[in-house]
Design a protein around this nucleic acid. Structure first.
Lengths: 116, 116
DNA sequence: TCCTGTTGCTACTTTTTGTGTAGCATATTA
DNA sequence: TAATATGCTACACAAAAAGTAGCAACAGGA
């Protein structure tokens, strides 16, 4: 059984009253949710393509994440497979800076020398 | 046993070679990771305060998340309990816009009327 | 029409995570 | 000394994810 889909206004992890930010964190804080959005930012992908580009995601989980992301208006199916909706693209705009940030984070990672 | 801590450069979910963005998504895509960072943005909190403000988080998980966030340089312990490091505050700066966005998302949520 | 390949899944078993509750050891304050 | 807070650890249980198999629907092509 898929876990319940986080909806703002309904109880979610972190908020019995469903504060939107907590509903969003519940949605995004599930395995592969962020990864799927990241992959789809490059354009529509089929289920199988997503499976390949997200190494080691199981079809069960991928299907659950896609269901959740569709029901929350972030992803939709169309030509060429799954794609971000306008809402999803908005979300990606917020997510995009994490790419560059993660690289700087990696460089100064505790125990890493800044790679010469 | 706590799950392994995602480190850029080491294999993580989504990337055998540990692409930084995938390591970051692995770190943040665990339950309560985003919520903890969000809570700590208001200032340092004790373990118990975090437990209370994150409704329904179990101490086991909270402790695991804090360990991971500390070892990845996002959170540290100091006066007044746990607090974001400068790195953690940087991360929060990227996260902050999600607050406002989530409210708009809630308003036009599939099945919600834009509240009059 | 039969074969071959692709796609989007579902089913199932095993392993990993998270929940929920209890409670302990170490301060701190009265 | 007792009461309180703090930062946990230890379970027993439940939920989620991994890993693998395979099926139904469709699209060519021979």
């Amino acid at each position: 059984m898929p876990s319940s889909i986080p909806r703002p206004g309904a109880p979610v992890r972190g908020s019995a009253s469903g504060k939107p930010i907590m509903a969003l964190f519940d949605l995004l804080g599930r395995s592969w949710a962020l990864g799927v959005i990241w992959q789809l930012s490059n354009g529509p992908m089929t289920f199988r393509q997503l499976q390949e580009s997200c190494e080691s995601v199981s079809p069960t989980v991928l299907n659950n994440r896609l269901k959740e992301l569709r029901e929350t208006g972030v992803v939709a199916r169309g030509d060429g497979g799954y794609a971000l909706t306008p809402t999803g693209r908005e979300l990606f705009v917020l997510l995009e800076p994490f790419g560059a940030w993660s690289i700087r984070w990696a460089e100064r990672f505790p125990g890493n020398e800044p790679s010469a």
